[in-house]
Design a protein around this nucleic acid. Structure first.
Length: 422
RNA sequence: GUGAGUGUAGCUCAACGGUUAGAGCAUCGGACUGUGGAUCCGAAGGUUGGGGGUUCGAGUCCCCUCACUCACCCCA
């Protein structure tokens, strides 16, 4: 029978041994980001609702129907963050971080909250890894973060991925294009699906997102934004492409790639998995040149991406590092005491050891050690105790040797070293 | 928010509308009293998601509800 108290819909417990994979993935991300000069930043999970209304966009789906918003005891409207970028921008402005030497490079891990209908690769509480760069206008940085993203996914053992790149223009060229697109689309409105007719009204750019084969064929003929970029945007995009070629990355220009957040300008990109279903974007991001200004900060450009950890982990081929466990097997109260003492010493020397308080047979204890995949067991009974020794058993070979108490640590260290040299 | 599919032991799954709902894996114990992995034996583990209905009889059929899954939508 299902217990009456369960995890909230769209959320889930991450249990061992799966947590090992999370740790490993997080550690790999950290290593890669630090190698590229990023520093960790941590901001609160709850933020003023207005932060997202202003930045993410008043008309976006995220803000209009997916936020976890509540009024706190002080009467303030609080929201569990649905994305991360606005928080970083807020923190930068609040602490005047833009006065430091630019560019600023930050990375971040944490849970995000969106009230979507859960499905494969989509949860209400999900985890993102996020990087942001502020104050760098050079198109080389656009390519650099894409290169870093690609490298990170390689390190995480993600195969069958594809880089999609586009430019969505800027406040100079996009409005003209949108007007043109809307006009052209109006002409063929009848042939579009119902959803697309609605998109046409709200956000014509999203027409290209439609999955109906019919619509995809029709929208092929519609004008594409990359053909209508202003000169600056076009130059920027061409530069980004040159740098991507410089890194030897294979990518696909995807004129259909538009982002769901209002603040994007120029470069947008996604890396998708070819092994996933409908929710196949492993990470997505782009440039947001005016976001800082929207919040009343200085006019400093920014860019970054967010990576969905659940999705990445579902295709990542990573294995947790094997830990060497030393399991204590003891017989009798006196042996237990001595074992605990040894156990404590070994832990202080950096070994991973385990002693369990079950008064079970030697056989059962060894069986347990086996189940836990212990590398060694230390066996201590009356006989050993009287002689001041213990049995050190190497579990894969089954070989066992007698070791005086005061030499256990040294001998284990040599054994470890020997194994490394193999 | 819309649609479809699925809910049986901790996990993976059986059981034509008909005895007391079974098996494998996992757990614990024993065979083997101080030596694990293999094998055999045993134990424990269930309000068949919940509620209502049809029926002599419901895990099975019907309705409601909840949860999960997938898709739409949206996005990481």
């Amino acid at each position: 029978m299902k217990p009456s108290l369960t995890a909230i819909k769209g959320t889930k417990d991450i249990l061992p041994p799966e947590t090992k994979l999370w740790q490993k993935a997080e550690w790999l991300c950290r290593e890669v980001f630090e190698a590229y000069g990023y520093q960790e930043i941590r901001t609160p999970i709850i933020e003023p609702t207005e932060l997202f209304v202003k930045g993410t966009g008043e008309t976006t789906d995220i803000v209009t129907k997916e936020m976890y918003t509540f009024v706190d005891k002080g009467g303030r409207s609080i929201t569990l963050r649905p994305e991360y970028t606005p928080s970083v921008v807020r923190a930068i402005i609040e602490h005047r971080l833009y006065l430091q030497a630019s560019p600023l490079r930050f990375y971040y891990f944490g849970p995000m909250f969106r009230h979507d209908r859960p499905q494969k690769g989509r949860y209400r509480q999900f985890h993102q890894v996020d990087i942001e760069v502020f104050g760098e206008t050079d198109p080389a940085i656009d390519a650099e973060i894409i290169e870093m993203a690609d490298y990170l996914l390689d390190r995480l053992g993600v195969k069958n991925k594809k880089i999609l790149v586009n430019s969505v223009g800027c406040s100079n060229c996009r409005p003209n294009y949108v007007t043109l697109l809307r006009a052209k689309a109006e002409e063929i409105k009848e042939r579009l699906c119902k959803d697309c007719q609605r998109r046409l009204e709200l956000n014509p750019l999203r027409l290209f997102d439609c999955k109906e084969p019919g619509c995809q064929a029709i929208t092929q003929s519609l004008p594409k934004i990359i053909d209508y970029l202003c000169r600056d945007c076009l130059t920027h995009f061409e530069n980004v492409r040159q740098w991507l070629d410089f890194y030897g990355l294979s990518y696909q220009i995807e004129p259909r790639l538009v982002r769901g957040l209002d603040y994007y300008t120029r470069t947008t990109f996604e890396i998708i998995s070819l092994e996933l279903g409908a929710q196949n974007a492993l990470l997505g991001g782009g440039r947001y040149d005016h976001l800082m200004k929207i919040y009343g900060g200085p006019d400093i450009c920014g860019l970054g991406f967010a990576l969905g950890l659940e999705r990445v982990l579902s295709v990542a081929q990573i294995k947790p590092d094997k830990e060497k466990l030393i399991y204590f097997v003891y017989l009798g109260e006196k042996a237990k005491k001595k074992s605990l003492q040894l156990c404590r010493e070994l832990r202080r020397q950096g070994f991973t050891t385990l002693l369990e308080y079950k008064d079970r047979s030697l056989k059962a204890q060894l069986s347990r050690a086996n189940k836990l995949a212990a590398t060694w067991t230390i066996i201590l009974g009356e006989d050993e105790l009287n002689q001041g020794i213990c049995q050190l058993k190497e579990m894969t070979s089954g070989q066992q040797k007698t070791v005086p108490f005061d030499q256990v640590g040294t001998i284990l260290r040599t054994l470890e070293k020997d194994e490394k040299n193999k």
